[in-house]
Design a protein around this nucleic acid. Structure first.
Lengths: 191, 191
DNA sequence: GATTCTTATTAAACTAGTTTAATAAATATC
DNA sequence: GATATTTATTAAACTAGTTTAATAAGAATC
């Protein structure tokens, strides 16, 4: 659990005893490619840390798959929207590669936050981090063209293009596969 | 400061003594219509609660105004992106009506969170609330047409349309004034 | 190695926006 | 109350995407 410990401490100082107290509640889980951590109408009780692999977070909306995020190594993740509000999920969390995660239940997480002010602060700061990422996402959606967002993804997460089929990347970018193909053609003709 | 107290307690229990400790740091400030709480390149040190009025949160990008949010009564707000990261702002916070806010400095807020675990929890939970709102925003941007987002705004915040000129609402929706006008025409012809 | 299945590209017709410019309507100012 | 200014609408030409359908390319299976 060294990666997990290190990632927590990248947010804020946590004493060894508080860290030990917190980590005891995380359970290692593995998912084969194509299996689901979560499906629509289920309640989500776990908060995850991705050790190895990749999970696609998506909805199916009138037959259309809409990928919201790909969670790969080092990501904290869950269906945060359903998790926070304690409502049934509308989404899928599907392992699109064989994946190993550490999971902590909501009740255990609350125990940890009650027990440790430092870890509650970690919770607040990791929410802040999520805020920053979502804020950038909103600005990209509002201010950039699809082509610009494609190029930015290519730059920021190049490994995704090795790991994930193009039609899922198109969905993540809010495009049809045809639309993404056109953009790629346009770009290849330019140079 | 009754509204502020009530709004904090809508998130989590806070004892009277912690609440009193926290509230002492909030200062009442007033801004005339057309004045600025923040301009680009400034650092933002305050976290605000809107008591009365309306503030527009926007950037100007190559001459184009892009409204990100309108903060009206009952909102907690700041340029959260710059505030969290302690980087110079790229945005304006402009009073588009005469406005009264309560402000707490970042140093004072940290004092409050250090002093009170309950108020730190309020901090975490209000970040969570912000997450939920931003998540919905992202999904609206990804999954709804401009027309649908216009109709949704009309339904959720009808008073904005009385208070704010249409070209700013167009900007908030990510449209040109011409585009919004077309949508309105299309809708009025339908019925 | 041929066949099947999945994924990616291309073409054609269409759509909801854009820009620019002109005009109309509403608001503020003298 | 006339004039100037700001805000909203309309028109025309354009653009970046959509959908549907056909085809091509790549990967998996027998």
């Amino acid at each position: 659990m060294e990666e997990l410990k290190k990632t927590i401490r990248s947010f804020t100082d946590v004493s060894d005893s508080d860290m030990e107290f917190g980590l005891q509640f995380f359970k290692k889980k593995t998912y084969k490619k194509g299996t689901f951590l979560l499906k629509p109408d289920q309640y989500i009780d776990d908060f995850y840390f991705m050790k190895k692999g990749c999970v696609s977070y998506y909805t199916i909306d009138a037959g259309t798959t809409r990928v919201m995020e790909f969670f790969s190594e080092g990501y904290f993740f869950t269906d945060l929207y359903a998790y926070i509000q304690e409502i049934p999920s509308e989404s899928y969390l599907e392992a699109i590669e064989d994946s190993t995660v550490y999971a902590i239940s909501k009740a255990d997480q609350l125990k940890v936050f009650d027990h440790s002010h430092q870890l509650e602060r970690f919770g607040r700061l990791s929410m802040q981090r999520t805020f920053v990422i979502n804020f950038q996402r909103i600005n990209q959606l509002r201010n950039l063209s699809n082509q610009e967002r494609y190029l930015q993804l290519l730059e920021k997460r190049p490994s995704l293009f090795q790991r994930v089929p193009q039609y899922l990347i198109a969905s993540y970018l809010g495009l049809t596969p045809v639309g993404l193909s056109k953009i790629r053609k346009r770009l290849s003709e330019k140079r």
